[in-house]
């Protein structure tokens, strides 16, 4: 249990998916105009990344490894994730139209979001997590994404009202805000050695 909580903290705060790993930058910069939209996108990302991590882990350990087809993982993952998002979309549309209305626009965006594919590959290549750990790692990553995008949206709603020199308006000021957030999140990296020691100690 401690292990799973630490995996979530590690992925959400320390190696934050956007501010530290630079995955999913486009939607991070593009959708962070309003807090409400950001929170909706965050919700959709939590939903999709958690499910995608679980499905990718099952496919890899259940089908690709027994057949010795590990090198096929990229092709399999990207197609499965793309199909998965469409299924999730259809399911939500039928079963809960209100959730679909809130998340609908953002679901297709996530299909080719590098964060989804990136964490599915990282779970296997970099960390070697098992099924449960992969799910929590995906969940933690998505929480980290949501925290980052909602915070950036908060900053942007203030920045937009300020008088900014012309060349800095638009993308540069958003990137500068992201840089400052990234510096703040670097503070968490001090925790990394401690958490990794505990993770090793607690074992599988």
């Amino acid at each position: 249990m401690i292990r799973l909580i630490l995996i979530v903290i590690l992925n959400a705060l320390i190696s934050n998916v956007v501010l530290n790993q630079f995955l999913g930058i486009c939607s991070f910069l593009g959708v962070s105009r309003q807090i409400k939209a950001s929170a909706s996108l965050g919700g959709a990302v939590i939903f999709v990344i958690t499910i995608a991590s679980a499905v990718a882990s099952i496919l890899y350990n259940g089908i690709l490894v027994p057949l010795h087809l590990e090198f096929m993982k990229m092709i399999v993952f990207i197609l499965v994730i793309a199909a998965l998002v469409q299924i999730v979309e259809m399911f939500l549309k039928k079963k809960s139209p209100s959730v679909y209305k809130a998340l609908g626009i953002y679901l297709p965006l996530i299909t080719t979001n590098c964060a989804v594919l990136g964490i599915a590959i990282d779970n296997i290549d970099k960390f070697g997590y098992n099924f449960i750990e992969s799910v929590f790692s995906g969940f933690g990553t998505a929480i980290g994404y949501t925290i980052a995008i909602v915070l950036l949206a908060g900053i942007r709603s203030r920045v937009d009202e300020e008088a900014i020199p012309r060349p800095v308006r638009g993308a540069p000021v958003v990137m500068l805000a992201a840089a400052l957030m990234s510096i703040a999140f670097m503070g968490f990296t001090e925790l990394q050695p401690a958490i990794e020691t505990v993770l090793k100690g607690v074992g599988q």
């Binding site: 486009c26 939607s27 910069l29 593009g30 962070s32 105009r33 953002y106 638009g170 993308a171």
Partner: peptide
Amino acid sequence: LVNSDGCDGC
């Protein structure tokens, strides 16, 4: 890049 609603981004 920053005002796309994500539709124009990646």
